[in-house]
Amino acid sequence: MPLGTLDRTPPPFFKQGPSALSKLMVCSALALFLMVADVRFRITQPIRASIATVLFPVQWLAMRPVLAVRTVEDYFTSLNAALKNEEAARRKLIVQSARAGQVEQLINENAQLRKLLGLRERLNTPTQTAEVLYDAADPYTRKVIIDKGLAQGVEAGSPVIDESGVLGQVTRVHPLISEVTLVTDSEQAIPVLNTRTGNRGIAYGDAGRHGSGGLELRYMAANADVQPGDLLTTSGVDGVYPPGIPVAKVAKVERRPDSAFARIVCYPQAQVDGVRHVMVLKSLLSQIPPRPAPEDAAQPVAKRPARK
């Protein structure tokens, strides 16, 4: 047996030094000390600044390929979007060109019919533009806030539209801002007219009711002539919305044998999500002249002179 093992000491290869627990405690205390010292005395801030300065060129060079790839992706994405927008604009231009030839003829026919029937001309609705500031904080309603109020002449009940159709109605007016309830709100209703059949109905907001976030044409008979794709416009019978403004398109018609009414789901024509600029119309009720006071029908009869 080697004499080196008689002193009961481990060979140099198996010497471990301090235990792992001791190392953990020392390192933890050192880390805690450095964190406290950095927070109180900011002793590591110059070191970090120096390291960041030295590593900045390396970081700049490393980010060049990433930025180049992003630039190329953005270019092709923008190019693809531009091509799609150009194609959509051309299609819309073709449709508008086809309709433009019929506008003058329809205007002349409308004027002749109104003269023939003795109808008055349609009211000219005053308008003003507004910008949507933010959505209302209430998660159970569909409302937005616009930057026009009493100071700009906005009145409660005024219709609000965008470039595509009816957006909603002003329900609350403040001095500088107004609250607009969207057509998809569950408490909003608007009289509509089916442009294909001429049938009238009432469209109710359906946001949150069936999870569709659109509108529902209620109380229509199960055998009513309503088809997907029918355009619904304002009928004007409520005296609030001018007639002929697009409201929604029919998306789905469900006819159930156990119900006398059909469930008609529609999606709004206006951009109810993410709209930025809107137009506030003046309510038709405020433009209609007041009814003239009834004149006294019975006039006092002059007394006849008595016969002699």
Rank of each mutant, 00 (worst) to 15 (best):
A222F: 03
Q299C: 06
L123Q: 08
T127F: 07
V166I: 10
T171I: 11
N110K: 02
I47K: 00
V237M: 08
A151F: 12
S19N: 11
Y219G: 01
F41V: 05
V66L: 10
T184S: 08
T5Q: 13
L284V: 00
T44E: 07
Y219K: 01
S28K: 02
L217A: 05
S78T: 03
G201N: 06
T141R: 13
E131H: 11
R120G: 10
V26R: 13
R42E: 14
V72P: 00
G274P: 01
D162E: 00
P46N: 03
L176M: 10
P305C: 04
L150I: 08
A298K: 09
V265N: 13
T195I: 13
P305E: 11
Q188N: 08
G236H: 03
R209N: 13
E187D: 08
V183A: 06
Y75C: 02
I245G: 02
E295F: 01
V144S: 00
L34T: 11
L116I: 03
V36N: 02
E295C: 00
T125H: 07
P57F: 04
A207H: 07
R196A: 15
D162L: 01
L133D: 01
A29H: 07
R304G: 13
D38C: 02
P11R: 12
R48F: 15
I245F: 11
D238P: 04
I245T: 05
Q269L: 09
V240S: 03
E155L: 15
V180N: 00
Y204L: 12
V275G: 00
D238C: 02
L133H: 01
Q128T: 09
G201Y: 03
A297K: 06
L32H: 03
E216M: 10
A207S: 09
G236P: 02
I146V: 14
Q96M: 10
L93H: 07
G244K: 02
P300R: 03
G165I: 01
G17C: 07
L167C: 04
T171G: 11
T53Y: 10
G239N: 04
M25K: 14
P139Y: 02
M63P: 00
Q102E: 15
N223Q: 13
S22H: 04
R114C: 09
A224L: 05
G165C: 05
V278E: 01
